[in-house]
Design a protein around this nucleic acid. Sequence first.
DNA 1: CATATGTCCTGAGAGC
DNA 2: TGCTCTCAGGACATAT
Length: 285
Amino acid sequence: MPELPEVETMRRGVAGVAGMRIEHVELVRGRAKPIAVKPSPARFRRRLRGRTIADVGRIGKRVVLHLDDGHAVIFEPRMTGLVLVTDPPNTDHLRVRLQLAGGRRGQPAELLFWDRRGLGVVHVLTAEELAALRDGHLGPDALVISPDELRDRLCKRRRPIKVALLDQAIVAGIGNLYASEILHLCGVHPERSCTSLKKEEWSRLHAAMLQVLELAIRYEGSTLSDGTYRNALNKAGGYQNEHRVYDKAGETCPTCGDSEIVRIVQAQRSTFFCGSCQRAGRKRK
DNA sequence: CATATGTCCTGAGAGC
DNA sequence: TGCTCTCAGGACATAT
């Protein structure tokens, strides 16, 4: 579930490790099987140990530690992963522990990767691999992409707009939850083919995307009913209370106050929308 | 190349 | 109470 707002919240929460040196790398073997790291555990450790963290960044839904030698550590939470600088929700699913030293005030610190379901991964990339990820594998970040580029990258696709928004190679950072919220805010039906959107709808979509993502960041992300997502200090987010459609099938649409929110399945994922605010076929308003 | 589908994983909740 | 079953979805491999 961590999407751009949750990952950006994690990044901000651990940004204080910049300037610190990695003293020890522990791949924790708890009750669960060890997390997937790349390259092999031995080389993973060797690339990290002794290095200084130059900067803490984010690419789409990944947290990035830029190391002083050009390597980059990629934390990819996928469904239930968390990047933390405090105690994790439990010790059973702690996967990686980086022991750090040399902070501004000199205290030791830790950077943890915790993942209940274990679908997440942690990779160390060379500078070349990082460039390939950023400039080849993934599309522009959703917070940075311009309205024109968003339209250019999507408008020829024949897939439904909701499905295309989830494709990280087109635009990076949007996941299942925020895709429904964004389309509801701009009044675009999730099953519309990208090819059918009008120019004015593309600009509404871009504006809604920024509005939803930026507000969600301000609320420090969404913690769903399973309670898994926490920020870097193991605190719940607050944006779940602002959701207008996600996981609200059967409830009254907060925009029109009239129709019920509907749940459909697209590409094996739930989509939520309002049939009267988001009309199929033609634009609204 | 674009698009579609199956797979991984664990714990919560439903149903019997 | 305790068992089995289903489901959640991010990213990628594989198929069409």
